[in-house]
């Protein structure tokens, strides 16, 4: 029987072959190559040195972090409002809300960029409308700036964040709001002092996912700006598939920087969650 049991390990083989071939080995090679100079030679930190001294890369890191932070903050705020509302209304309204969120969450990349070009591009429908109706903020809207990018990013953050948060809001116990009311607390006091603090770990966790999602987003920004707007994923890709010579070492180092930013973000939020948990006892 035991020999037969080990025979079943063969069934694991296809999975590990695919994972090794298309995930683990290529990703490890990115890490290794980031420490090798593109001109050939042995171990070096020169790729990292380039990233932290060349203005283009500094700016792309700055832009990426800025847009990711802004869009994640706005996204999480709207998602908290949305998930709280969905938790409250239940029934058919919630079902159609969830359906739309699910649908829109699949709607990113090229189609999203195109829709925003139609809406708010230089010849956009809303821009024309703003001109005609005298709404300056619409007429003068600049889609091809970091502000415009943030607006597009916020759009795809909202459904993702709301879908991630709704289950956590639904897990809140009804007894808590009832006890809060019995003790004379108002509705808003319950949310401020009980529900939101209890949900804080989930909110922070979702924030991390949003941040990583925005940091890695590539199709949307590429469709709108090509490679003109320095962002980390754009620079990474252009080091591998650029018209000029490919530079896997530099691209690898940029990839490592990007993954490190995400790792730092997750670590920070974990520390924050731990600190918060000292004050609030969590539900069983």
């Amino acid at each position: 029987m035991t020999r037969k049991k080990y025979g079943y390990l063969l069934a694991l083989l296809p999975f590990f072959v695919v994972a090794l071939m298309y995930e683990i080995i290529p990703l490890s090679m990115v890490l290794i190559k980031s420490f090798l100079p593109d001109e050939g030679g042995s171990f070096t930190l020169v790729n990292y040195k380039i990233i932290f001294t060349k203005l283009l890369y500094q700016r792309s890191i700055y832009n990426s972090m800025k847009i990711s932070l802004i869009s994640s903050l706005a996204g999480i705020l709207i998602a908290v409002i949305g998930a709280k509302a969905a938790h409250a209304i239940k029934g058919r309204g919630k079902v159609s809300f969830m359906l739309i969120l699910n649908m829109v969450s699949n709607f990113a990349g090229i189609p999203l960029a195109f829709a925003y070009m139609i809406l708010l591009g230089n010849e956009g429908v809303l821009v024309h409308m703003g001109h005609y109706l005298g709404i300056a903020s619409l007429e003068k809207f600049q889609l091809y700036t970091s502000f415009g990018m943030s607006i597009v990013y916020i759009y795809f953050q909202i459904p993702l964040a709301t879908l991630l948060l709704i289950p956590s809001f639904d897990a809140l116990k009804k007894e808590w709001s009832e006890s809060a009311q019995l003790l004379g607390g108002t509705h808003s006091l319950y949310w401020r002092k009980i529900a939101i603090p209890v949900l804080m770990p989930e909110i922070l966790g979702t924030f991390c996912i949003l941040f990583a999602n925005a940091l890695a987003a590539y199709a949307t920004v590429y469709a709108l700006m090509m490679s003109d707007f320095p962002l980390l994923p754009v620079e990474i890709a252009s080091n591998y598939v650029g018209e000029i010579q490919t530079r896997p070492g530099l691209g690898g180092a940029l990839s490592v920087v990007m993954m490190s930013i995400i790792a730092v973000m997750i670590t920070l939020s974990n520390i924050l969650i731990k600190k918060l948990q000292k004050g609030v006892s969590r539900r069983g």
């Binding site: 290529p26 990115v30 890695a216 591998y240 993954m259």
Partner: peptide
């Protein structure tokens, strides 16, 4: 763990890593 790595890596890095390897 192996299945969740692509979720955090996402498209750009995964695609360039496969490209440069093969």
């Amino acid at each position: 763990m192996i299945c969740m790595i692509p979720y955090s890596i996402q498209g750009v890095i995964l695609s360039v890593s496969i490209l440069s390897f093969y």
